[in-house]
Amino acid sequence: MMFSSISLTGKLHAGLEELQARASTWWVMLQISIQERFVYRGDFVLGTLMRFLPIVTQIFLWGAIFHANARETIAGYTYHNFVAYYLLTMVSRAFSSMPGLASGIARQVREGEVKKYLIQPVDMITVLLLARVAHKLVYYFVAALPFAAVFYICRHYFPGWPDPEVMAAYILSLILAFLLGFFLEATLGLISFWFLEVTSLLFVYMLFNFFFSGHMFPLDMLPEPWLTLVNFLPLKYLAYFPAAVFLGKVQGGELVMGLSVQAGWVVFFIILCRWTYARGIDQYSAYGG
């Protein structure tokens, strides 16, 4: 009895130590990535502002459509809703888009850089995830000002701040969107263990993502059977869903359901990503020098 309790505390202690060691490794990796990111800060600010330009034409287009057809709402959206929607998808995309992630993994596989992770006591997916978190943190830090300016100028397009619960759900959906975007694209990148060249696959993904994530228009505008199709895809949680939550389009039970499905997709892709990585390593043959 006595003996087993000692070994339990011992185990617990060892476990805590290991966790601490891991956390400090993660912290170092995060710091390195943050410093790396700050090297190109000027490019960042300019890039952020330029990304709003395509939205300008979209806003003018919808303004003209509403005016020409003397409509109050189109597909349940007022003109103001449309503008707010497009701006909010920019926020969603700031969380869920992972530029260069999949193609970066594919390059590392192709050029044999992956073996670095096989001999170092760090895990490839963890390193990439932390680098991405660092990338995003720096991005928000630099992009906060241009984003705040644009949202302030456009504030009258918004119905006002949502309730605290909705706001909490919105932030949760953004974090889930980040995780979903990461593990989805990482899985795509890992496919390069089998096919060395995945550029065209990534292009197709980008295409579908652009259209079916809701970046181009609010997805609930779609007629059947497209609407059903889109609801069965994980892509809508990358841009449409968080924006719809903020605008109060998804409420009550539907909101809980939506968040659960989003979390479900995240878990699904974490498992798929892990599995793909393990299987990929098994048959990896270290090309390149």
């Binding site: 003209a64 459509i65 005016h67 020409a68 057809n69 197709v204 181009m216 228009f217």
Partner: peptide
């Protein structure tokens, strides 16, 4: 792949005209 981009773009406008009708205008009196 370059054709697919075009189809997506076309799909977007088909969707718009699906909502406003094929006789709806994109801009007033245009």
């Amino acid at each position: 792949s370059s054709l697919s981009w075009v189809f997506m773009n076309l799909g977007f406008y088909i969707l718009i005209f699906h909502q406003i009708g094929s006789h709806g205008e994109l801009a007033p009196q245009s």
